[in-house]
Computed example of a mutant assay.
Amino acid sequence: MKNILNYAFVLISMMTIASCDRYEDLKVSQPDFDVYTLSDTYNVGDTIRFILEGKADVITFYSGEVGDLQLSFASQVRFGSQENQLRVMASSDFKGNYTEAGINTATWHDITDRFLLGINTTLRPSGTASITDLVIEGHPLYIAFRYVGEASATATQRNWWVNHFKVDVALPGSVSNVALHTSVDWKFVNFAGNATGAGWGWSADGPGGRLLFDPAGSTTYAEGWAIADPIDTDALQPGGVPIKAVIDRQQKEYHYVFNQSGTYNTRFEAVNVTALEEKKATRTISITIEP
């Protein structure tokens, strides 16, 4: 019996040691990694040599470039005679409360003058305009079409159609779409004081369908908002470029070219990883690109 107990003790001890050895094998050390350049100032189009030192399992590069948020659409107008009824609005503090009160408590910026609006029954492209200046970090951006019809028995209210709504992020060498007219879940807020039937809706006619404000022959004040899905402004930050995977050999250099002037806070993230844990080291270099 004593021999059996001794054997069991030895076996358990061996299993414990083996388990500890396996755990030690899965422990991660902090990446021994650094990066530098030969200068902190370059010209547009120069090839920048980032010199990499040390070792890491995975290395990812972030250029520090920020995308340009761009909006475009098309519109047309019919009937009536009132002017300046359609406005393009933007907000970074709207809370998604799709009511008159929710709209009125938010801060909205009128950006209509950045676009061309329809002048007759021909669908008129708005042109593409940057809306990056409206972005507040950490806040989604809401874009809306606001219709205001004034009370009048002589200057009649007009019907407006909006189509081809599109929001893109333009980065050097690439453009990616973040909102498209046909996939947006439009929210309509037609004010309670509107005449019966006056307000925004979705019209199935036209290419892919379109937004329509129908004043329903109103001679009293009418207001309505068509609000697009919030734009995730994190889309302005491009994803990192993987420059080394676990199975890759360690690189000595990484090359990159900036095509626009400015100051960029480039970042390298070096990670050592196992099935149990990971440890990360981040190195940042500020690069000034001159014209």
Rank of each mutant, 00 (worst) to 15 (best):
T156S: 15
N97Q: 13
T220K: 08
L123I: 14
Y62F: 13
A144G: 09
L212C: 10
L38D: 15
K187Q: 01
A56Q: 00
V35R: 08
S130A: 05
T37W: 07
I59S: 05
P207V: 13
Q260L: 14
W186E: 05
G224T: 03
I227W: 00
D68N: 11
D57L: 05
Y147R: 02
L171T: 15
S72R: 08
A155W: 04
Y256C: 00
A204C: 10
L212M: 15
L180K: 10
A195E: 01
D229A: 02
G80P: 01
I289M: 12
N43E: 11
T266H: 00
A192P: 11
V273Q: 01
N120C: 13
R283L: 11
L236H: 04
D57I: 12
F33V: 09
V184K: 01
L134I: 08
V58L: 14
S75I: 04
D46L: 08
D68R: 11
N104F: 03
T41K: 02
N190Q: 10
S91K: 01
K244T: 11
I103H: 01
S19D: 14
W225S: 02
E53W: 07
Y7P: 15
I17S: 05
Q30H: 06
W202T: 09
E150G: 00
G45A: 12
I227P: 03
T182V: 12
A56Y: 01
W161D: 06
V167C: 07
D113C: 04
R249D: 12
L26E: 15
Q251K: 15
P31N: 06
E269P: 05
I231H: 10
V28E: 02
D113Y: 11
P238Y: 06
G201P: 02
G206N: 02
L26N: 15
Y62T: 12
V178Q: 05
D21C: 14
Y254K: 01
V241H: 09
A155R: 03
L71I: 00
I287E: 04
F33E: 08
S63F: 11
S183P: 05
A179V: 03
D57V: 02
L117N: 08
K252Y: 03
V58R: 07
G197D: 08
E253Y: 03
T156D: 14
T41E: 05
G67F: 04
T196G: 10
S126P: 08
N177P: 04
T121K: 09
E53M: 11
S218G: 03
I136L: 13
T16Y: 09
G173N: 05
V271S: 07
E269L: 08
A281E: 13
D234S: 10
T41I: 07
L212F: 09
S19W: 11
V257R: 02
R146E: 03
T274E: 05
R49Y: 11
Q251P: 15
F9H: 14
G208C: 06
W202L: 12
A228C: 10
P291T: 15
Y142S: 06
S75E: 04
Y36W: 15
G197K: 07
K27P: 10
G149A: 02
F33T: 09
N272A: 10
V175Q: 05
P242M: 09
Y36C: 14
L52E: 10
A151W: 04
V167M: 10
P230S: 04
I51S: 12
S72M: 07
L5Y: 14
V77F: 01
R210Y: 07
G45W: 12
G199Y: 04
T182E: 13
